[in-house]
């Protein structure tokens, strides 16, 4: 199990399109992935409803936990996705 904390790069936060891209990647990763806001409960990162219900905004810090599969590679990819601005 690996984990990392990352700052959200999308200007409008993890809503709609960025959330879709992120959950699609998490679902396709083959690992079990959770995401949580600082102090929040971790939710399944492959659940778009779970992710958008967190109300994650630009600049928020979130913690990713990846379990199983190619953990390190999956974590790197997802961190990269979260720190990129998809709203330009």
């Amino acid at each position: 199990m690996v984990e990392r904390t990352v700052r959200i790069g999308s200007t409008h936060g993890l809503h709609a399109r960025p959330a879709k891209l992120f959950t699609q990647a998490a679902a396709a990763s083959g690992s079990s992935v959770t995401i949580s806001k600082a102090g929040g409960t971790p939710v399944n990162a492959a659940s778009i409803l779970g992710v958008i219900s967190q109300g994650i905004d630009f600049g928020d810090e979130v913690t990713l936990v990846v379990d199983g599969g190619d953990e390190q590679r999956v974590l790197d990819e997802l961190v990269e996705l979260l720190s990129t601005d998809h709203d330009e």
Partner: peptide, 16 residues
């Protein structure tokens, strides 16, 4: 397409 694909994901959402 983005809107419709996001809707498709809502339909198959594991939490739901």
């Amino acid at each position: 397409q983005d809107v419709l694909e996001a809707q498709a994901m809502m339909a198959e959402d594991p939490t739901l």
